[in-house]
């Protein structure tokens, strides 16, 4: 009984994670300027990471794999937002101001 619940929960999390990854990918491609695209990309790096990795942890149970997955999650959640921040900061300092009117991708 418990196993079925855990299974369903983990499949649900994995599916939602997959959907989030896809949405973020489409957003990275389609959104109009750099900052909005950064927003979409960082969605896949935090939310989707948590959903997919927690889904896999539920499947793995209490094993060494779970510890490794937790470590991967911790490092991803530390580094990915840092990278996004560093990137946004670099773009801002180079005079690329976030402006909803300006659309640089009309190709």
């Amino acid at each position: 009984m418990i196993e079925t619940v855990v299974d369903i929960l983990s499949w649900f999390l994995l599916c939602t994670g997959g959907i989030f990854v896809l949405i973020g990918g489409i957003g990275t491609l389609r959104l109009p300027d750099f900052y909005t695209r950064l927003h979409a990309a960082s969605l896949t790096e935090t939310m989707a990471t948590i959903l997919i990795l927690v889904g896999m942890i539920l499947q793995a149970g209490l094993t060494l794999a779970t510890i490794k997955l937790l470590t991967i999650m911790a490092f991803l959640l530390l580094t990915a937002p840092t990278a996004s921040y560093a990137l946004a900061n670099a773009a801002l300092q180079s005079g690329n101001s976030p402006n909803a009117q300006q659309r640089d991708d009309q190709t």
């Binding site: 490092f75 530390l78 580094t79 840092t82 921040y85 560093a86």
Partner: peptide
């Protein structure tokens, strides 16, 4: 500051 702190931690 932020890359500094996180990088040092890493």
């Amino acid at each position: 500051l932020i890359p500094q702190v996180v990088g040092r931690l890493l």
